[in-house]
Every structure is written in C-alpha cells, then in structure tokens.
Amino acid sequence: MAEARFAELLGQAAMDVWGDMPRDIQEALFETAMKGHAGEREALARLLHDRHPRTAHPAKPS
C-alpha cells in the first residue's frame, strides 16, 4: 500500500516540475509511464502540454 502512495506522490511531483526538466528526462519518464498504456499517450501528452506550454518542443533533428 505504501508503494502505491509513494508512486502517486512521485508522479504528482514529476507533473509539477515537468516544465523545468530537461527534454531527455521528460521523454524518458513519458515513455516509461506509457509502457503498456498506448491508448493514453495522447491524453497524457495533452495534459502535460496544457499544464506546461513551454514543453512544446520543436521536432528533433533527423
């Protein structure tokens, strides 16, 4: 039970500071969170961008 509560607290903290994180950390957290939850990718991305508009990064160079 404590593990689930700590995961919730850590997740909320990550969302709170999302815009201050380097892009590579954002991407790593996002991809880890979305493993097995492909149907929720767009909803989470939208939530994060709505909360932290400055995270709308340009496309990565090819």
Rank of each mutant, 00 (worst) to 15 (best):
P53Y: 06
L44C: 10
H49A: 03
M1G: 07
W18M: 00
A43L: 12
T32I: 10
F6Y: 07
A7C: 00
E42P: 10
A43I: 08
P22H: 10
P58Y: 01
T55I: 05
P22F: 06
P53L: 04
P61A: 14
R23M: 06
A28S: 13
H52A: 03
G11F: 05
R23K: 13
M15C: 07
P61D: 07
F30N: 09
E27K: 14
T32K: 15
D20A: 07
F30V: 06
R54T: 01
W18G: 00
M21I: 04
P58I: 01
H52D: 04
G36C: 11
M34G: 11
A13H: 14
R23I: 04
W18L: 01
G36P: 11
E27A: 11
D16A: 09
K60L: 11
R5W: 01
A7R: 13
E42G: 10
L29N: 12
L48K: 06
G11W: 05
H37M: 10
K35N: 13
D24F: 14
R51F: 08
K35F: 12
E42K: 15
H49G: 01
A13N: 08
A4F: 05
W18K: 04
Q26G: 06
M15W: 08
E42W: 15
M1Q: 09
D20K: 15
M34R: 15
S62I: 03
G39V: 08
G11T: 01
H37E: 11
M15S: 04
H37N: 14
P58F: 02
L48W: 02
Q26W: 05
F30C: 05
L9F: 05
